[in-house]
Design a protein around this nucleic acid. Structure first.
Lengths: 211, 211
DNA sequence: GCTTTAGTTGAACGATCGTATAACAAGAGT
DNA sequence: ACTCTTGTTATACGATCGTTCAACTAAAGC
């Protein structure tokens, strides 16, 4: 047995890029489990499987990590208006928002925690303002394209604001007590909402209606 | 001059009821100013103008104060269906939600902070589940009464959920960046939303439309 | 005016937080 | 095989947190 000849690896070394990505992922898990109270250096490092001091080697500050987490999380959601079919764009927004990968308690708790920090963390505030504005403008421009052909029963600006508020509100409710309604109910709510304003989207086929 | 004969009052004594109410008010101010990070024993007591140790005399725990704060804040908002005119009830819900006393950044930041604690604080979770259920059932029952006479273009359950989500979502948006839209815009959004589903309410007269 | 009650103070405690820092080791380059 | 770079560890530090507790006093009751 060459057990003693095999040198015990104390730790494995990774590139700064990979390690940062792992810390971002670990941070999201911690936020999802314990909210901002669970977002501590100890727990994040334990979740990432690294020692306590390493987090400040890759991020100057814990707030800097939080901003990176926010940037990472918005990358999945905020979509630009690519000039393609307008109804498809709106459907994509809804589908992404209510995909199981996004619409689950852990992820929504992470979002809620971050929202609570936006007003006090300046860098986060700037980042949010920028991304949110882009998000809303995309939806508005798509709705204006729709209103050129179909009759949109309200101005695009209001409907865009309402759609975003509806999505965020459903996220919030589901996060606070997920037994109140189902994912698919929240999802169809959005289609129903747009239909009420005269925008009918064809539902993606891969969806099984719920009782 | 009888300056030395006037005994200097070190502190004034108040009933437990009054002091508790003051601590609740002070806690709301702290939450509104600095979110959950500003909700510390030091800051709350300083805001209330009392010494540090007194808070645990009136509340066993800081979480207990938070639950009392939540209870106090919901008292203003959650209304029961009293069987009166249905449209008036809905209008009252909206008016209360978008009154200046409720719909301001400080108050909304307090709400956002509390929401972030609901999933981790058990007592708060129970309280929220109870009050929220009552809130939703009230709106649902009113919408069902409306659908008996007028045509409601969707089931009452969905519209109730959407209305609540819309209100909460508008609260959230306005809290995160209040320069994005105005109070009255958010308010009329709700009336517009209900109108899209076939429920037209007469707007209260005391409102000046905004440009 | 004295006793009693109960609201109030301020210091102290242990726990936990984010960050800084010095020693160390893994792996690439030569 | 050796050096060098840099990712990594472990400890330590000061600050701040929520809570406890003994001493104190304002105010009511008699």
């Amino acid at each position: 047995m060459a057990e003693n000849s095999a040198v015990k690896q104390v730790f494995s070394r990774k590139s700064a890029f990979d390690r940062r990505a792992e810390l971002v992922a670990a941070g999201i898990v911690c936020l999802g489990e314990g909210g901002m109270a669970g977002f501590t250096v100890d727990k994040i490092c334990k979740q990432a499987g690294i020692s306590r001091g390493l987090i400040n080697h890759h991020f100057n500050t814990k707030d800097e990590l939080l901003s990176c987490i926010y940037a990472h999380m918005t990358d999945h959601l905020v979509q630009e208006d690519d000039g393609g079919p307008a109804t498809e764009f709106l459907a994509r927004i809804i589908e992404v928002s209510f995909d199981e990968a996004s619409f689950n308690r852990s992820n929504l708790r992470a979002w809620l925690s971050i929202w609570g920090q936006v007003s006090s963390n300046h860098a986060l505030n700037e980042l949010h303002k920028q991304r949110y504005h882009r998000y809303r403008e995309s939806i508005k421009s798509v709705l204006m394209r729709i209103s050129a052909t179909t009759t949109l029963q309200a101005d695009a600006d209001s409907v865009a604001r309402q759609l975003i508020a509806l999505i965020d509100g459903l996220w919030l409710e589901y996060c606070l007590h997920s037994d109140s309604f189902s994912l698919s109910a929240a999802r169809t709510d959005c289609y129903q909402f747009l239909a009420a304003y005269g925008v009918t989207l064809e539902l993606p086929v891969n969806v099984i209606p719920e009782v």
